[in-house]
Design a protein around this nucleic acid. Sequence first.
DNA 1: TTGTAAGCGTTATCAC
DNA 2: GTGATAACGCTTACAA
Lengths: 334, 334
Amino acid sequence: MRTKSSAPTMKDVAQEAGVALGTVSKVFNGIPVGESYRVRVQEAADRLGYQVNNYARGLKTNKTFTAAVIIPSTTHPFFSLLTEELSRALSLRGYRTLLAITSFDLASEQQCIEMVRQNKVDGIIALTYNPDLRIDDSLPFVSIDRFYSASIPCVSSDNYGGGQLAAEKLHSLGCKNLLFLRSGSSVPGEPDKRGAGFEAYCQLHRLSSQSLRIDDTEGIRPILDFIDSQIRDGHFPFDGIFCSTDHLAVDVLNHLTLRGIPCPEEVQLIGFDGLKDFFTHKPVCSTIVQPVSEMARTAVDILLSQDRFRLSALTCLPVRYQAGGTTREDVSGS
Amino acid sequence: MRTKSSAPTMKDVAQEAGVALGTVSKVFNGIPVGESYRVRVQEAADRLGYQVNNYARGLKTNKTFTAAVIIPSTTHPFFSLLTEELSRALSLRGYRTLLAITSFDLASEQQCIEMVRQNKVDGIIALTYNPDLRIDDSLPFVSIDRFYSASIPCVSSDNYGGGQLAAEKLHSLGCKNLLFLRSGSSVPGEPDKRGAGFEAYCQLHRLSSQSLRIDDTEGIRPILDFIDSQIRDGHFPFDGIFCSTDHLAVDVLNHLTLRGIPCPEEVQLIGFDGLKDFFTHKPVCSTIVQPVSEMARTAVDILLSQDRFRLSALTCLPVRYQAGGTTREDVSGS
DNA sequence: TTGTAAGCGTTATCAC
DNA sequence: GTGATAACGCTTACAA
């Protein structure tokens, strides 16, 4: 029956159903209309395989029911989980996800923002590193793990509390000489508070502790070198290490093993993120678990909330400790 | 200067620049225009922070420069890599990515197609399981790993050849009694050819081989039970196993280790996918590597090619073997 | 070259 | 309750 080459429009449906254009529109917007008309329109639409054109609708309504997710990568387990949870949360609220991957490139981050703005998204959720990001505040924007300004809501896990928790755990596990290791982006962000919380706990409880922070541009070589420099006669002076990420913790664990320092026997190790090995579904190390799912839901809630500006500028979600083989309580299960 | 509440439009820019609307449009479409005008328009646009409205443009041109990626999940390493590569390839061609996650749900797959169609995407790349998917062929569609019909181009790796390659490798590594294990979706797809290729090689070379295939709805328990049932006096009768995925290979490896069957000493194991451990960047097992990046690029090329119907219905990309510790040649490096 | 006006598919405001 | 009609922001003939 369809001789038209392009997709059917409301006009086609109206003609097919023998009703006026406006009536068709009403049917598809749930606006009350005579039952017989409703059925006629519905049938005609089905026959034609009609789908409403969101672009045209958005042009009129200024709503596209599409949100952008801007993220550095999709292959890192934390980001991939975050992406999935964000997409799921948006979908649950009837929103589509426009995905933009920045590859950790600062210029690309800005481009992505411009690009998705052209697509007239209703809002942006972004995990970025560029401290000078130009964010137009006419468009709802929620930042993850990076605080920009009071007018840009930021969602993160309780990094500071997580650092404290890690110190507390190591403390209660009998560690006397603590070490904090950090490898990460050179631009400041919420995750920096992990070390701050850790150090605060140590200071408060008069625990001996030392910290080493490096940029990930240098690779982790400096950290491994530091570890080697500390080893004297096969002995490592620290008995508890908190690493800023699980990834770093695993690298440190492997290096210590290589050097014959047994973990958790001689030194206990706690990471941050709560990543699970994909194959075994087991934690890769003892760790502070980020509530990724809640973070995603919260970010979406804030993005879509009517009065975003009433909300607090920074939302920190609670973390929890999870044993994973690199601390000594594990023998009694967890 | 901006007193308008909503985003600036071309009209605003025209007014600001003191030129006609059409002139502004031309500037943003690269259509030649007097240099002085071009500059005036550009400046006015910058001043106003103007961004073209892709929705309005698409309405007129029937092109949105947006493609949909429909995928079961973003957390599985293979899918997450595929998603990233697809997004990257699309971006390189000037396309945005609309991401839809189906969670392996057949009904959701259909919904996603409908949903992205409403957003007037220019095409869809999908990895789906629903054999009865209703695909409107008015919209370019490229399927990954599942062949629907001659009019729906399908991209996959050379699953059949990969199966052959696995058998050949095990053969050349001295295995005499082979086993193929498969756990996967109950709906047929290109990956099923892995086993077929494996068996074909065994038959051709008169190698003793056996196969066990189960649906992943049952979990992998039946496979582990089968393995247990084969063990006699601590001895396992098969000396070479090909698993349909790396994931299965790792599970089998762990189970064999648990039962005291050393791998690769007593039995050698090859998986399929080529996944790397995220932390160590090392293969999780000896494996047949899928060319994910090429698959993504190919899918995008096909999707955006003008005459898609000239192309072959099924494009199989070459795989390669990679040693990863579960086969015996590894001692001499890889 | 530049300006004008029609129209893309939809919604919303009206008379009917 | 139903059906014309004017926008929405943009592109594109076509006229100036």
